[in-house]
Amino acid sequence: MPEESKKPVKYDVDGYDAVTDALVSLLNSFPGLEEDEKIRFSTLDEDGGIAFYPVTGAVIALEKKSVTGKVDQLCNYPFYVIYRSSIDSPKIKASIKEFLDTLGKWLEQQTVVINGEQVKLEEYPVLTEERKIEEIIRLTPAHLDNVSDGNVQDWAISISLKYRNIFYKK
């Protein structure tokens, strides 16, 4: 059998910043955050905090080109949300897992209950140019990812943001 040639992975380099900026705003609008909590981009303190980390950038999963020069790309932007805590109690662990799972459901535009109130993300933020978020899906449930010195625990959830990028090439 002939060996299949692997296509090189292509990235929407220009879309990376647009998606990252929109995701920072979207994650920080999550109604389950405490008043003084922020989800930061790729930054965690040694003993606590919440951050998101892109996995590969914006990968072009599918690309269609027409004879008129129209290019239609479906892109994936996979990322992790990491919740770090130095407090080791079963109640805190359950609370962190529930927070991350609820965040994932909310990003999927499911109705979730936060502080006894039903909330739903109605629409995704607008991206730049002709990019549009199609969906956000959880790739894993929340789980304990790492335990480091001093019993500092990193809980993680893997999520993928899919967006469409349509433009014309001359």
Rank of each mutant, 00 (worst) to 15 (best):
57 G>S: 04
13 V>E: 11
73 Q>R: 01
68 T>D: 07
16 Y>K: 10
20 T>Q: 13
19 V>A: 07
23 L>E: 09
40 R>P: 07
71 V>R: 02
25 S>A: 07
67 V>T: 08
74 L>I: 01
7 K>G: 15
55 V>D: 02
37 E>W: 10
52 F>P: 13
36 D>P: 04
23 L>H: 08
28 N>P: 13
18 A>K: 08
53 Y>G: 14
65 K>M: 10
66 S>L: 05
50 I>M: 12
67 V>D: 14
23 L>A: 08
24 V>C: 10
50 I>V: 13
42 S>R: 07
42 S>T: 04
65 K>I: 10
65 K>P: 11
32 G>D: 04
21 D>I: 14
59 V>G: 07
10 K>M: 08
47 D>S: 14
40 R>N: 15
61 A>Y: 15
46 E>A: 02
59 V>D: 11
74 L>R: 04
26 L>A: 14
13 V>Y: 04
67 V>W: 12
21 D>Y: 11
16 Y>C: 00
62 L>M: 11
9 V>Y: 06
12 D>C: 03
37 E>T: 03
16 Y>A: 09
66 S>R: 05
55 V>I: 10
8 P>N: 09
34 E>C: 03
24 V>L: 03
59 V>K: 14
26 L>E: 15
44 L>A: 08
34 E>F: 03
54 P>A: 04
13 V>S: 11
39 I>D: 14
30 F>P: 13
53 Y>F: 06
8 P>Q: 06
12 D>F: 00
10 K>L: 08
74 L>S: 03
11 Y>T: 14
17 D>L: 05
74 L>H: 00
58 A>L: 05
41 F>M: 04
44 L>I: 08
48 G>E: 08
59 V>S: 03
35 E>F: 07
15 G>A: 00
74 L>F: 02
66 S>K: 05
36 D>F: 11
20 T>N: 15
69 G>F: 01
50 I>Y: 01
54 P>F: 02
44 L>H: 04
42 S>F: 12
68 T>Y: 01
72 D>H: 12
28 N>K: 15
6 K>H: 12
42 S>N: 09
43 T>H: 14
46 E>Q: 08
53 Y>P: 13
33 L>V: 04
71 V>Q: 00
60 I>H: 01
28 N>R: 15
63 E>V: 06
52 F>G: 14
18 A>R: 12
